[in-house]
Amino acid sequence: MFVADHMTTSPITITKETPVLDALELMKKHRFRELPVVQGNRLVSLVTEKELLAVSPSPATTLSVYEIRGLMSKLMVSDVMIKNPITVDPYCTIEEAALIMREHKISCLLVEENEVLVGIITQTDIFEALIKILGLRKAGTRMVIESRDRVGLIAEITSIVRDCKVNVIGIAVLEKNRERVHVMLRLGTKDPGHLIKALEEAGFKIVKCSC
């Protein structure tokens, strides 16, 4: 699954000349935490709520509202924006995007194609993609199978599932140690009794099975 399938296209943007107060108001209105900074349709930078709040006066300040607004009106996005933000192309995979965010400790990625901003993908979008991949919103059964890791393991399991005429909605594999893995299946049935029996007869251990 690609970033293009889950990103927000045509995101709301600002320019370097946007006042910090206006950027904060825009974030508050749309419940954003990041805003791309552009010049025309060319990506320039990124500004986050964290950077904007860092230059905002503390609630404990003794300045009056008018003094605060006077000071803040002089601050532009160009004063606090992130230089050289990390970008990806639309055909970056979801797992690659998640890894980049994790390694750089960032909450979003700007999506760029031919130097033109085409979208933005956030941590929330990544979580939503994971939910879809695993079929968590679809009715059915979640089954976890423990097995020795080996070539052809998934083929063996799905062959048994097929013979039991059960549809696989989602699948994931977690390595427990060097020799054993947990295989999670999201199945399109609420009555997997016959499948459990077939898997156990084939030597598989069912760790958990729940609707």
Rank of each mutant, 00 (worst) to 15 (best):
C209A: 10
E51H: 09
S107A: 09
R186T: 08
L46D: 13
V183D: 00
V118F: 04
R142I: 04
L24A: 09
C209D: 02
T141W: 05
V116W: 05
L136Q: 01
K28V: 03
V181M: 00
T87W: 05
L109M: 04
N41A: 07
I14K: 15
I154L: 13
L153E: 01
G193N: 02
N177Q: 04
D125F: 12
T13C: 15
V80R: 08
M27C: 11
A155I: 04
E95V: 13
T189L: 05
T122A: 05
R31P: 04
G40D: 13
E146S: 03
A129Q: 06
I206Y: 13
A139N: 04
A98G: 13
H6P: 06
S159E: 06
I171G: 00
C164R: 05
K74V: 08
A23L: 13
I100Y: 13
A23C: 13
D22C: 11
N177W: 06
M1K: 12
D22G: 11
E103L: 10
R33V: 03
C108W: 07
I160W: 00
V118Q: 07
S45Q: 11
R180Q: 01
L185A: 05
E146L: 02
A202W: 03
I154Q: 03
E25S: 14
M184N: 03
I120V: 14
L75K: 12
L35W: 15
E115W: 06
H6C: 07
F204E: 05
E200M: 04
R69I: 08
G152S: 03
E128C: 08
L26P: 10
D149K: 00
V38Y: 08
I12M: 14
K83Y: 04
N114L: 07
P59L: 05
V111S: 07
T124Y: 08
A139C: 01
V47Q: 09
S147G: 01
L53K: 10
Y91H: 11
D79V: 06
A202L: 02
R102K: 15
E201R: 14
D89N: 13
G188M: 04
R31Q: 14
M184Q: 05
L71I: 13
R142D: 03
S10V: 10
M143E: 10
N177D: 15
